[in-house]
């Protein structure tokens, strides 16, 4: 059982987390949903498409516009409240590393804190515990938020991702976050070369074997672009290939830009794995 704030999901459900950026400069949407009304339209669209989770972010992951605490609060808190009011059944996640933001968005109705910078602010997991929110433990190898990777090196990147995320999960557990409300995320591209992200994908079964539910964030990232030599807007097919492999290895939550295509891939892989009945099968069975 996975408990994400007010919502629970059985262990055989593969969940789609749709990205909703309230940023001007995120690499893929380039500010398309920066305006609050545009972001709300995006939420309406992805919920209609079947996303179980929306992941609201106020700060671009990589270098870009300076977004201080006040600006991040301005971009996220009121918007979370609007989404909560209009969509009581959707899981609201907020992508932040700052505990002050975590506190305010949880009070406004967030269910999940997606700590994409891996415990950089140690008080964030305490906020999750206090509010009964879920928490994502991300592998960033101790990076500073928004710092691009440079000459990173691991003896074994999969071992490092497992050790760091499980350690963070145990810290969150000790702080009072419920066991069924913790996810681990190997964080493709974060403090990683493309080679590292490919190996993480290839060996994701080692991460799922820990028993902690795994979240993957693959969508249109540079490791796909470098692998296929394709610009940002042409990475969907590669993203879906990585999605299929991750689903085969047992990842549970998929943070994505394209909901419909992802859902089809997840449904297909789940049926191949035998954890989802096909929609309607009559071929050669009449």
């Amino acid at each position: 059982m996975l408990t994400l704030g007010r919502h629970t999901f059985s262990d055989d459900r593969l969940l789609v987390m749709a990205i909703v950026n309230r940023t001007r400069d995120s690499f893929y949407d380039k500010g398309a949903t920066y305006a609050e009304d545009a972001a709300l339209d995006r939420v309406r669209q992805v919920v209609d498409q079947g996303a179980e989770i929306v992941d609201i972010g106020g700060v671009k992951a990589g270098p870009g516009d300076v977004v201080d605490l006040d600006e991040e609060l301005r971009r996220t808190v009121g918007f979370v409240a609007r989404v909560r009011e209009e969509f009581p059944d959707v899981v609201i996640s907020v992508d932040t590393w700052r505990h002050e933001v975590g506190e305010a968005v949880c009070a406004a109705g967030a269910d999940l804190l997606n700590d994409a910078w891996g415990g950089y602010d140690p008080q964030l997991l305490e906020v999750a515990a206090r509010h009964g929110a879920a928490y994502v433990c991300t592998h960033t190898n101790g990076a500073t938020p928004r710092q691009p990777p440079h000459r990173v090196s691991y003896a074994d990147v999969v071992r490092a991702a497992i050790d760091d995320t499980v350690a963070l999960a145990n810290r969150a557990l000790a702080a009072g976050v419920a066991r069924e409300s913790l996810l681990i995320d190997p964080a493709h591209d974060f403090e990683k070369t493309t080679w590292h992200s490919l190996e993480i994908t290839r060996r994701l079964d080692e991460m799922t074997a820990t028993g902690w539910p795994v979240l993957v964030s693959l969508s249109n990232k540079d490791f796909v672009g470098e692998t296929l030599d394709l610009p940002t807007e042409q990475r969907l097919t590669g993203t879906l290939a990585a999605t299929a492999i991750s689903a085969w290895h047992g990842a549970r939550v998929y943070r994505v830009h394209e909901v419909v295509e992802t859902r089809q891939v997840l449904d297909m892989v789940a049926s191949i794995r035998g954890i989802r009945p096909p929609a309607r099968t009559t071929r050669a069975l009449a």
């Binding site: 009945p277 309607r280 009559t282 069975l285 009449a286």
Partner: peptide, 14 residues
Amino acid sequence: TPLFFRHLSGQADP
């Protein structure tokens, strides 16, 4: 018809 076995048609039951 094997479709009498409910599970064989997946989520639908034609």
